[in-house]
């Protein structure tokens, strides 16, 4: 199996883990909604297209029923993973090619950047501020990152390749946080509808516990024994996904 270069892996993490969590941030959290409230144009989409990797689309849409027009589209082509990563890492100058929506480039791209800045501020800010939100965003990023890593990174692939195929669902109380699926060859992840019933479900009983797990400060065996974390089903699969989730920090520093 061919594994990704560091740049490609990082770009896929940005595209397939970070961008969907940013989408969740603006759609589902008051903090994210607050960032976008001042926007005038609320019916547009941003398509990120990296040569050799693929596309991810972010739709910004608060249109009410009856608005039938197509959203305006800013379609950005990045010639290399490195170019995309430069935008996220804010290293050097990187201007993607606008395949469509050129007129939006200088108005809407900065909007996204301010949104990303706010996201980053929450993720990197004082750990006592916005702790529940940061925890939620971090676990979702880790879940989606694990799917990318299992696909693209040798160490992660080696870990998952010995596992029985199945889907691991992660929950906080009764709320689904996201899922990862391993079919024996490929890994996929998502934050919304499960494509099949879970093979294993891992439920955290509190945000504090989840945060401790994300920080690597949790005695997980003890937490399971105390029923603070409930694992139901094929536990080894969740265990391995947990290990892979930990590896995301190597690439995406919280």
């Amino acid at each position: 199996m061919d594994f990704c270069s560091h740049d490609t892996l990082l770009a896929r993490l940005h595209m397939e883990a970070l961008l969907p969590v940013i989408r969740f941030f603006i759609e589902e959290t008051p903090e994210g909604k607050a960032v976008t409230e001042s926007w005038q144009d609320w019916h547009w989409e941003m398509r990120w297209h990296v040569m050799g990797i693929g596309k991810t689309t972010l739709l910004f849409d608060r249109a009410t029923v009856g608005v039938a027009c197509q959203p305006r589209r800013l379609h950005l082509l990045f010639l290399s993973p490195f170019q995309l990563n430069s935008i996220f890492l804010k290293k050097g100058f990187s201007l993607p090619l606008p395949l469509s929506g050129f007129s939006l480039l200088f108005s809407h791209l900065p909007r996204f950047q301010s949104l990303a800045d706010q996201f980053e501020k929450i993720m990197r800010g004082n750990r006592h501020e916005n702790a529940p939100l940061r925890c939620l965003l971090a676990i979702k990023t880790a879940i989606l990152s694990a799917a990318v890593l299992a696909e693209c990174e040798q160490e992660s692939h080696d870990l998952i390749s010995g596992c029985t195929p199945g889907l691991a669902l992660f929950k906080l109380g009764q709320t689904n946080l996201g899922w990862i699926r391993w079919d024996g060859r490929h890994a996929t992840g998502g934050l919304d509808t499960l494509p099949e019933p879970p093979t294993v479900t891992v439920s955290f009983t509190s945000t504090a516990l989840l945060q401790a797990a994300l920080d690597g400060q949790l005695d997980q065996l003890a937490a399971v024994g105390l029923c603070d974390i409930q694992v139901c089903g094929l536990a080894p699969l969740a265990d391995v996904f947990g290990l892979i989730m930990d590896r995301a920090n190597k690439y995406l520093q919280p």
């Binding site: 005695d219 997980q220 065996l221 003890a222 399971v224 024994g225 105390l226």
Partner: peptide
């Protein structure tokens, strides 16, 4: 005790 009970006797298993 790390894990509370570790190894094969861990309640987690």
């Amino acid at each position: 005790v790390p894990g509370g009970i570790y190894g094969h006797a861990s309640p987690a298993l």
